[in-house]
Design a protein around this nucleic acid. Structure first.
Lengths: 135, 135
DNA sequence: ATCAATGCAAAAACTTTGCACTGAT
DNA sequence: ATCAGTGCAAAGTTTTTGCATTGAT
């Protein structure tokens, strides 16, 4: 389970970290804001973990490469577990539903474009905004 | 000049709006945060236009389709004039330099992917982060 | 004259930080 | 015992809003 990952990240294995990682692993929606995580903590636990701690832990997890932070529209950053498989996102402007996708053609073109501009690509963010229409 | 566009947007032609549009049109860097615009106003003008007004006007311009708001990394939103030609961005993490690009292959793939998911595409955001290397 | 637009200050929303206490090793 | 981790409250940042005044038509 997650305890290992925390240790490998050079962080002490504490209750807040274990719980937050657990929540990220088990929550039905993969993408959660700090507030989302905090709310689950409030509901599930009798324990009291501060919102500030949630932010701190998520930031540490991000630094450690355990989670990825996204800045979608709407102020709040959202976090998701980094499963190692890069992907982009489709965000429904109506429901907030998020679907992940990966397209090698797009990835390839990005690398080419960067190269053409003498740009050393470190990362990228591709988000499609729109609306899921019932099939 | 810009006066027409403001009128067409259904907004009264006022000094703050004229000046802000003018700044967006003439500033050497196309992408400016509200603070950037505000700073130019402070320097150039004896007039005093409030930061709140800059935010209000930029938001109105966005609604009117005159400018586009981007949420790049780093907290502050940046605005650019909408010249009608859609493009994406390369952002240098070192210098902050921004280069625009457009790639029809990527655009096309996005449309296809959206279609495959029953997703009605309204908009998208593609940002490449990295570093420009001397040629 | 009318009603939108603005300045100012206050508030809101999100996130970070200082500090004294707690807890993992 | 030590030093990282945490809770709490306070502060920081960016953006928005309420309200009285100003200004465009």
């Amino acid at each position: 389970m997650g305890t290992e990952e925390i240790k490998l990240a050079g962080l002490k294995v504490t209750l807040p970290r274990t719980r937050i990682l657990q929540i990220l692993e088990t929550n039905k929606t993969r993408h959660m804001s700090a507030e989302d995580v905090y709310r689950v903590l409030l509901d599930d636990d009798a324990s009291s973990i501060a919102l500030a701690t949630v932010y701190r832990v998520l930031t540490q997890f991000e630094t450690a490469g355990l989670v990825i932070r996204h800045n979608f529209e709407g102020g709040q950053a959202v976090f998701e577990l980094d499963n190692g498989e890069h992907h982009d996102h489709m965000v429904c402007l109506k429901s907030g539903k998020i679907v992940e996708f990966h397209d090698e053609i797009i990835e390839q073109r990005q690398r080419e474009i960067a190269k053409e501009h003498g740009f050393e690509l470190a990362d990228h963010s591709l988000i499609l905004y729109g609306e899921f229409k019932g099939k």
